[in-house]
Design a protein around this nucleic acid. Structure first.
Lengths: 265, 265
DNA sequence: CACCGTTGTATCTATGTCGATACAACGGCG
DNA sequence: CGCCGTTGTATCGACATAGATACAACGGTG
């Protein structure tokens, strides 16, 4: 992490934390643990003691969450066992939602990303074209309105001429045999580059393949390192395609899986 | 949001908030705004007053962040103008990292997702096969270790027989002309389903296409609604493929772009 | 009817964070 | 040399959040 402004491929996304937001109330991992504990214990009191936190606070936290998210826990006082609480269906849905968000965030942290610097050459709605060292790439920008960025941050919006970073998740890149080229008009994946496999980082069942772009014809100049794009491929696909370093391949990915982010001036 | 356990396609991802984590210190939007303000004002004092927050606190916050993330701001006291501060290169890198994380989160909130319930039939490392109502789908699970889930949450790990949700981002689904089928051995995208376009939700330049699965041959039974998968497609691709409701298409997406998340029991 | 363990509700205290304020240290500049 | 605006550092009070504690209300059960 020493270079001044050369992210290159595989800049680690790092650890992260995510929370749902509704009505200014955040639903985070602590809340998820609370709901799960209620589900397991069958009572808020039992959940609180299992988590080692105050019962009164846990209850008021649940009430605060319900003000924002609707009914989450069905509580009943009196009756057999003195009463008890059950996770409502909507509470289960909220947990599922949180888990999916968490899964996406975990994926962005675990999956390599390719980051390219470029300049915007055209903007058309939510789509924009960026000129990079490997050619023109189209991708999506914006959408940050939906996150909660009306807050303190807010720095987006892209215009022609802006310096941006292009982010391509390795899980969105499809590797194709260079020989049997698919009909470009028969698919909705439009971003396309040719290159050669430069490395295969093997994983247990999933491997990261690095493709050097622009090395399609001759081997590179050695002192001019090619820019690489990472692709996440199952071991099965690697074997089926017979991928090995040096092989010419064609990679392809959707513009809608490409994110443009304003580069910190 | 009334059904008990039927998420179906397009369950809204909702708003979210993300923060980087290093060494138990969160870097969130407020910190990003602070660094940007320092960059703009040329001093921590100016940044604090521009943001309407305490200068002393802003400085100590920067010090706390630097303990975790390394040098972020180069500060100098005395000299012309009495001193000042500049955003260090690593600070700019951190801002870029944060912006990319934010962009990913914004994307998951803005992009439709298809959620299918299923049962795990096989687990092989980080890859698993899930049986769903539209057939077997393979996807990734886990990776949550990298998020910060050592904390209070922690509920993952998948085994054969588990009930899971399969999450497919609409931005990862490729739509192909059903007629000119690509050679299945020439691509690394292995998940494949056939269906018919059931709806096109037009956007400005990007549209969401819903594909009814299993409706390949006859029109459906009307009282048995097909499960739908959403795909995010540029208007240009829709036109090029000539997509209209009723058209038979083949969709394809990578196993590595498919996330498996444990279903809240 | 009394018992029981839970849900509600209220109050007090501890803790951590933030703003506000004050003051010393620094170093170029007039 | 003194001025200036900044960086450092320390302290105080306001505020929000958490735990701790106490007690009333509830409704099956024995």
């Amino acid at each position: 992490m020493g270079e001044p402004t050369e992210p290159g491929p595989d800049a680690a996304a790092g650890r992260g934390r995510a929370a749902l937001i509704e009505d200014d109330v955040e639903f985070d991992g602590r809340d998820a643990a609370l709901l799960r504990a209620v589900d397991a214990a069958g009572s808020v009191a039992g959940a609180a003691s299992a988590l080692g936190r105050s019962r009164a606070r846990a209850l008021s936290r649940i009430e605060a969450l319900e003000d924002a998210y609707g009914t989450l826990v069905e509580r009943r006082r009196g009756g057999e066992g003195g009463g008890g609480s059950r996770l409502a269906a909507s509470g289960r849905d909220l947990l599922d939602r949180y888990d999916r968000l968490q899964a996406v965030l975990a994926a962005t942290a675990a999956v390599p990303e390719t980051v390219l610097d470029g300049t915007v050459t055209a903007v058309d709605g939510e789509l924009a074209v960026v000129d990079t060292e490997v050619g023109e790439i189209s991708g999506l920008h914006g959408g940050s309105d939906a996150v909660g960025n009306d807050g303190p941050d807010r720095h987006s919006e892209i215009a022609t001429g802006d310096a941006v970073q292009v982010r391509i998740g390795a899980d969105a890149v499809t590797v194709n045999d260079a020989a049997s080229a698919v009909d470009p008009d028969a698919t909705s994946a439009r971003n396309r580059l040719d290159g050669r496999v430069s490395a295969v980082d093997p994983g247990e069942t999933v491997s990261t393949v690095r493709i050097a772009i622009g090395a399609a014809e001759a081997s590179s100049d050695a002192d001019d390192p090619d820019t690489e794009v990472a692709a996440l491929i199952t071991a099965e696909s690697i074997e089926r395609l017979g991928l090995a370093p040096g092989d010419p391949v064609s990679i392809r990915w959707k513009a809608t899986a490409t994110r443009l982010v304003a580069h910190a001036e």
